[in-house]
Design a protein around this nucleic acid. Sequence first.
DNA 1: CCTTCTTTGCAAATGACTTGCATTTTCAGC
DNA 2: GCTGAAAATGCAAGTCATTTGCAAAGAAGG
Lengths: 129, 129
Amino acid sequence: MTKAREAALEILRNADEPQTAAAVFQQAGNSCDLATVYRTLHYLEKHGYAESFVLYCNEHGTERYYTALSSGNSGSSAHRHWFHCEGCHRFIEIGNCTVNSLAKEFEIEHNLSVSRHILYFIGRCSDCR
Amino acid sequence: MTKAREAALEILRNADEPQTAAAVFQQAGNSCDLATVYRTLHYLEKHGYAESFVLYCNEHGTERYYTALSSGNSGSSAHRHWFHCEGCHRFIEIGNCTVNSLAKEFEIEHNLSVSRHILYFIGRCSDCR
DNA sequence: CCTTCTTTGCAAATGACTTGCATTTTCAGC
DNA sequence: GCTGAAAATGCAAGTCATTTGCAAAGAAGG
């Protein structure tokens, strides 16, 4: 684990919301190149330290957001889902998600395999309504 | 409704899967500019003729996919969700989706408003397993 | 140390999508 | 049917997140 990777992972672990590459770059104090941040995030995801999803927001456009997974090296912790506020751009975790069982049903019904799923909500939080 | 918009809407209505701007452009036989296709799809979505979502696929990257909404004054069709096969890149509709009720619960629980949600599955269909 | 493999920085490239602007279409009102 | 203002289109150039080529810097093992 190199210094840049350690730093990025620490940033993701300390964050309570999904982070974009640009956000990680900024929090790292520009201590490394943005291209390195992208490569680092790919590395972290590939090796099971983080997961990501692509989210579209009116104001920020389409960006990939990363979250740390609790246990690294492919020992996966639970996949999470988020609500994104279009006002303040904060994220709130959607707990208690039933998508997994929905995916399982769908797999059986269609005799196929679902390797991942994406779910998120967009709206306005209680402060921004 | 101009010719280009009529054509794009017809393409979406005849499609049984979500279509990208590039796909609509191609099916339109390059009869208009790609920029016009983008503008047209924005128009259709803004005016309730279509809806869209952004999906990431390993092979095709991040793209926006459009589906027609049945825009008769009688009934606008419900928002739909899709499974995307990473092998053949076909889409299969996920029927019977419980996300709406999940969103409603979440709204009440957090005193916020969810204006839209994104859900899709990625995997391999029965032909591509 | 020295060699080799990996990672990084920098700059340039990519690809989906957007936009400025001049030209064409559309369409309501004659 | 004509006409003119408003809207739509084509083309080219721009934007923006993300990726990649390549040479230099760093790590790891002998």
